[in-house]
């Protein structure tokens, strides 16, 4: 290097998200895939210290996270907004037992959505989560992803909080058809 400019390492929001999981020592990463989560899922599959768990339905992940914490491991559930509806009754396990819980949800059915079938559940996502007692935090800017995930993991695992992070469709990009 011959110039004196400070070189900043630019990371993607996906890398920031994954780094936040690693920093917090998340060990189990249950998911039903979404295109918006695909880079993080791929990173998890390449990492020997984190176990990705592919699910048949999102509610499985809620129960898995509770079992993981019973045994002392941290986990994060990845899903898209349409999966939230599948989780509703299982979320009662979180509130009945005060389990710490973090889920990261990619939003469909909002910005530039082609598939109108995604819209009804998307519109009900935040309300459904709040009705089940979760604190919902929405992220629209890539730069905020890492810090929001890190803060949520800290809150959840320091004092048994339950937090859903919504990654907006504007952030992840609308699906190309």
């Amino acid at each position: 290097m011959t110039d004196n400019k400070q070189h900043q390492i630019i990371t993607s929001w996906e890398e920031d998200l994954f780094n936040a999981l690693k920093q917090a020592e998340v060990k189990q990463l249950p998911y039903v895939p979404d295109a918006g989560h695909s880079k993080v899922i791929n990173m998890a599959h390449r990492d020997p210290d984190i176990r990705p768990v592919v699910l048949t339905t999102e509610e499985e992940g809620v129960a898995l996270c509770c079992g993981a914490w019973l045994g002392g491991e941290k986990s994060v559930l990845l899903m898209q907004s349409s999966g939230v509806g599948n989780c509703i009754n299982m979320l009662s396990l979180i509130s009945n037992c005060n389990f710490p819980f973090v889920t990261i949800i990619t939003m469909r059915g909002e910005f530039g959505e082609f598939n109108s079938w995604q819209v009804p559940m998307s519109s009900a996502t935040q309300g459904s989560l709040e009705l089940m007692g979760l604190n919902v935090q929405r992220v629209d800017e890539g730069d905020d992803v890492g810090s929001t995930v890190a803060a949520a993991l800290y809150s959840a695992y320091s004092s048994d909080q339950r937090i859903a992070i919504l990654l907006s469709q504007k952030l992840i990009g609308s699906k190309k058809w």
Binding site: K27, Q28, R51, V53, E59, E60, G61, V62, A63, L64, C65, C66, G67, A68, W69, L70, G71, G72, E73, S75, N89, M90, S92, L93, N96
Partner: peptide, 18 residues
């Protein structure tokens, strides 16, 4: 006492962590 359908998955999370 609830969470019907979740027992086996809770067992999986526990088994992986222990």
């Amino acid at each position: 006492w609830g969470a019907m359908g979740g027992a086996a998955m809770m067992g999986l999370g526990l088994a992986l962590s222990q």
